[in-house]
Simulated scan of single mutants.
Amino acid sequence: MTYSWLLPEYCEDILPDNAWALEEARRKLLDLFKKRGFNLVIPPLIEYVESLLTGTSHDMDLQTFKLVDQLSGRLLGVRPDITPQVARIDAHSMNHTAVNRLCYAGTVLHTKPDVLSQSREPYQVGAEIFGLSDVSGDIEIQSLMLDALSLLNFKEVVLDVGHVGIFRGLITTLKLDEKTENDWFKLLQNKDIPSLKIATEGIDSQIRNALLSLPTLNGEAAILEKARLILPTSLQITAALDQLDAVKRRFAGQVKLSFDLCELRGYHYHNGLVFQVYSTDYKGALARGGRYDEVGSAFGRSRPATGFSLDLRQLITFKR
């Protein structure tokens, strides 16, 4: 027997109490963004797949519902993430040369839930800065992210920060093929030191020792000094550590800080600082962000870019 009122798995109505709470929170966050100089954009729900997935990872491709456009015959995708759309708007639709601050709020759709207890329809709210290459842009976004979470009554949080440039700086001289690079990336993400020891046999001993040390370089700010003693002093690695130090100086004493030099989330998408916020009473990250300077080049303009996003639907449901 078919019940006409059944919804697809991991899709559900938002009923009045939660709906009003979500709408009130959305207004608060957008008001905050506006006060900080961010302009609101509303991208379309569907786009041509080649545009929608430009510069994103294979995982994002798997999360995208696809359909054929009856007008053009081309393949469309339902957006699984708004950030690439905002990068397209900055690079093509607005075509600014100055620093551009944009924000957004809207539903995205995933083929599978990120976590089995969550909806396939996250309500994504976020902010992006384009055209600002200095670490001050990352710090501005992190500060906005923390203030946004404070508005949502998440007070006791941990700002966890990493930098994908450290791993890239270590392997840049090795000229690895794509498969090997991806294999090492997965081992580092899993902090699988025994397997990494086997995988890196025969390479330069200094680089190998540095790679094997990355899974141990996580914790409070003191690990940054330890990292300077262990890691090679290349320009890329030194610049990455300098940026991490800048974050430490900005937020020390204001929020609990944690650094993880093995954190490579979004490695194929991000190219600099990556960050996420945790709370002891919430499973998973409250919000995530990072630098992604290279994405705009696919739309004709390579622009420095950094931003963050959160799933407002999930956070509101948790708070209630």
Rank of each mutant, 00 (worst) to 15 (best):
L174A: 07
R313N: 11
P232M: 10
F251I: 12
Q254K: 15
V277D: 02
L264W: 01
G253D: 06
I223W: 06
T83K: 00
L32C: 12
R320C: 04
E12P: 06
D90N: 13
A21P: 08
G37T: 06
L71D: 05
G126P: 04
L29H: 00
Q118I: 02
A105F: 01
L53T: 02
L315D: 07
A91M: 10
Q254T: 06
D61G: 03
G296K: 04
T2K: 15
L32N: 10
D160N: 13
L52N: 04
Y282P: 13
V255Q: 03
R74F: 13
T200G: 08
Q63F: 07
G73T: 03
G37Y: 15
L312M: 06
D61P: 04
D260V: 01
H110S: 06
K248C: 05
D245Q: 14
K112D: 11
F299A: 03
E225R: 04
I46D: 02
A305T: 12
G73W: 08
T317H: 08
I139M: 08
V115S: 10
S57L: 13
F167N: 02
I203T: 01
F33G: 00
Q314W: 09
Q254D: 05
N95C: 11
T64I: 12
P232V: 00
E9T: 10
E294Y: 06
T233V: 09
